[in-house]
Design a protein around this nucleic acid. Sequence first.
DNA 1: AAAATAAGATACAGATGTGTATCTCCGTGG
DNA 2: CCACGGAGATACACATCTGTATCTTATTTT
Lengths: 205, 205
Amino acid sequence: MDLEQPAKRRRGQELEDAILAAGWAQLIDGGYNAFTIDAVADKAETSRSVIYRRWPDRDSLLDATLTYGLNRDRIGPPDTGSLRGDMIESLRHSNLARAELAPLMSVFMGAYYADSGRTFADVRERALGARAGGSLDVILARAVERGEADPAKLTRRVRTVAVDLYRHDLLMNAAPLSDEAIVEIVDEVFLPLVKPGAEAGPHET
Amino acid sequence: MDLEQPAKRRRGQELEDAILAAGWAQLIDGGYNAFTIDAVADKAETSRSVIYRRWPDRDSLLDATLTYGLNRDRIGPPDTGSLRGDMIESLRHSNLARAELAPLMSVFMGAYYADSGRTFADVRERALGARAGGSLDVILARAVERGEADPAKLTRRVRTVAVDLYRHDLLMNAAPLSDEAIVEIVDEVFLPLVKPGAEAGPHET
DNA sequence: AAAATAAGATACAGATGTGTATCTCCGTGG
DNA sequence: CCACGGAGATACACATCTGTATCTTATTTT
């Protein structure tokens, strides 16, 4: 029953990753308030000192953890051959990748915003940098080429309408979307807005 | 320079309202974490005991405060004579009423969700009850009568698309929307989706 | 193999919060 | 006009976190 093995010591990158992974996990199931140095050290099965040796304070650790976490599971744009397929696939992928992340999204933005003055948009921007929205651009460019979308209708707002609605659902419910919800967003909102033909894109009566 | 007046004592409802107002204010400018019994008592210029006499713990006080705060500034649906006007006016009103509230929306949902297990949607539902979405129904019904909207296109998702996008912006940026953003949502997304005529509402290629 | 490096454990002082328990004294109602 | 409910002020025990400082000990590096 020797449960107390001395446990070989991790070092350098390996240890750092373990800490960030633990931090991310902690953030997910406890939220911003439960993200304490103690808790993270504990979950990583290491010691507070090890953390303080790398990051000066809780905030830095949080920053590093967010960057680490938000950059997992990033992937190139899908290519199903149709705009509809690409959009659905893309949202579906986010949805899976963020099944665990879902609670977090609402969680951390709260108190974190209050303390840091950063908005969720800020954090996202900082963490994802230029990569943000890259897939979408590719998907849309291809769709235009195929004649599935009218470039004139692809205003800034319309381009992001699907992701925005997706994210809205995620934030409001703190849970992954059903597949139907994803399809609904694409079929009832996004596609009708970008489909070529018929009358106007934007503008009023 | 007698700044230390004995300050006449408030009682009953008056005092309770003062506490809730203080709590709401506290929540708005400090967020969930700053919402401590001490802070609220302080801001209300009363004493911790007074609060504990009414609510058993921080959580109950928070509940009461949210209900109190979210029910301010509620108003009937606007009636400008056109769907476009109604929608814009409606969003604009929310926007004003929530100029202060904006930071809060993102703020409180965070840690609060984590601690309570409630989602933002839950809180909204609990606080607003049946009143939620009432205005929108009226606005849309009138629009259908006038022939400005095609009832067949008014799916559940499409009906709420404008508010959803509005709320999404609010949450992401923790700040009121610009007027242009509101108009954009209505003109580029909502109206094109509900306008009668031309091809299909929902469904695919 | 010795020396340098960093992991892992505590221990500490300080700050801040909670919820409970008193105590004084204002102001209203009998 | 006086008794009593409740406002307002502390004080306390307890808990939790932070950031710093040691100290021991396992691995690397030389």
